[in-house]
């Protein structure tokens, strides 16, 4: 177990240094959520959105999940380049744990997402968001679990396909409906019956609902439990899959 942790730390260190040295990429993922926050958020101000929180408590959690959804789902992009340059195989012939090659990257992805989420919440505060600190932190934990789930899937996919042209369409095909159907911008409570029913088949919906609840200061509710359960389940399955691909890739 110890070598796994050490190797994970080493791999994480490499990718964290890389991310820090290209600050541009840190910022780029945030442009979209920030635009929604500034140009879309004010529109919701006096609208009845259902639920307990005010409009910022509804929108900001949605934007955090959106950020997690998109930045994690495209995590695999970087690994395709590394694969192309032979970096993955070079690391796979060292004694380092192959699982750590995945886990180390995930550590970087989660830290990056947390950093970006904090900035979005700060921007939200400036615009009028009020939410309990405990709720915000709990929301971060939920979003981090989502990042683990999606980034693992993304890496697994990227290891399996050989060109970005095969990778991007899959991610886009999944992400856009997932985003629309999980009520990221507006709660699904507003949806007509059929759409509401449909959205219950999208796992991210439960997460969005849960993050909204904790931002509104409700912690011990069914929605929070369900959101945590679904996201954790997804993360466990994705991790198992990702680990398997990293252990056997090339086969």
């Amino acid at each position: 177990m110890l070598p796994l942790l050490t190797d994970t730390r080493i791999v994480a260190g490499r990718y964290i240094r890389q991310t820090l040295s290209s600050r541009l990429s840190l910022g780029i993922g945030m442009v979209q959520p920030l635009m929604f926050l500034v140009f879309f958020g004010p529109l919701l101000h006096d609208l009845p959105l259902g639920g307990d929180g005010d409009s910022w408590q509804t929108l900001v959690p949605g934007l955090l999940v959106q950020l997690g959804l998109f930045s994690s789902a495209f995590a695999g992009f970087g690994i395709m380049l590394e694969k192309h340059h032979g970096v993955i195989e070079r690391m796979r012939v060292t004694p380092a744990s192959r699982t750590a090659l995945l886990l180390g990257r995930l550590v970087r992805d989660v830290l990056q997402l947390l950093f970006q989420s904090a900035l979005i919440v700060l921007a939200g505060l400036a615009l009028g968001l009020r939410a309990p600190l405990a709720g915000v932190l709990l929301g971060f934990v939920l979003v981090a679990v989502l990042a683990v789930a999606l980034a693992s899937l993304s890496y697994a996919l990227a290891m399996r396909v050989s060109t970005p042209q095969e990778f991007a369409p899959v991610v886009n095909t999944v992400n856009l409906p997932a985003m629309l159907l999980s009520g990221i911008l507006l709660p699904m409570a507003l949806a007509p019956g059929w759409l509401d029913v449909l959205s219950h088949f999208v796992p991210f919906r439960y997460l969005v609902d849960a993050v909204r609840e904790v931002f509104a200061g409700h912690y011990a509710t069914g929605a929070v439990g369900l959101g945590a359960l679904v996201t954790t389940g997804l993360a466990l399955v994705s991790l198992a899959l990702g680990t398997r691909v990293f252990r056997t890739a090339g086969a």
């Binding site: 380049l81 590394e82 192309h84 340059h85 032979g86 970096v87 195989e89 070079r90 690391m91 012939v93």
Partner: peptide, 9 residues
């Protein structure tokens, strides 16, 4: 091992 395409980023 040095692969045909090398292994550096």
């Amino acid at each position: 091992y040095v692969a045909q395409s090398g292994g550096v980023d």
